[in-house]
Amino acid sequence: MSRTPASRRPGPAGGSGPAPYRKPVPTFWWLRRRAYLVFVLRELSGVFIAWFVVFLLLMAGAIAEGSGEYERFQDWSGQWWVVLLNVIALLFVLLHTLTWFGLAPRAMAVRLRGRRVRPGPIVATHYLLWALLTAAVAWLILKG
């Protein structure tokens, strides 16, 4: 190795010896590895979460306008392309939920009575909370 002070990014002019070779990053680097592809898909779930907000607000607006507008919303949301979009969105949201719960124990170092809680129980708590909230929301909407 050259004895010149190591620059942060050795370029063609840095150092005394010949230029080190820097491999360029391909534009679609995330297609080259399964883990990278899953990562990009996980990040793209954010787009579908934003779509859900739009869908929810359209529905809430329609309900506020009256029953006629609510029926028009129901007709619109029954079209094949809206349902298809929502099916894709749900798959992405589920990917988000599963990866989110899976990564949760990484960020939290929970201690109980001086002992570090293992990742398993932390993940299980998340799933339990998810089940409870899902049941509560479904009950609230379907009871009428």
Partner: peptide
């Protein structure tokens, strides 16, 4: 989103 969106979007 992880907790509430799946059920709302599904229904």
């Amino acid at each position: 989103a992880a907790l509430l969106v799946p059920i709302l979007l599904f229904l």
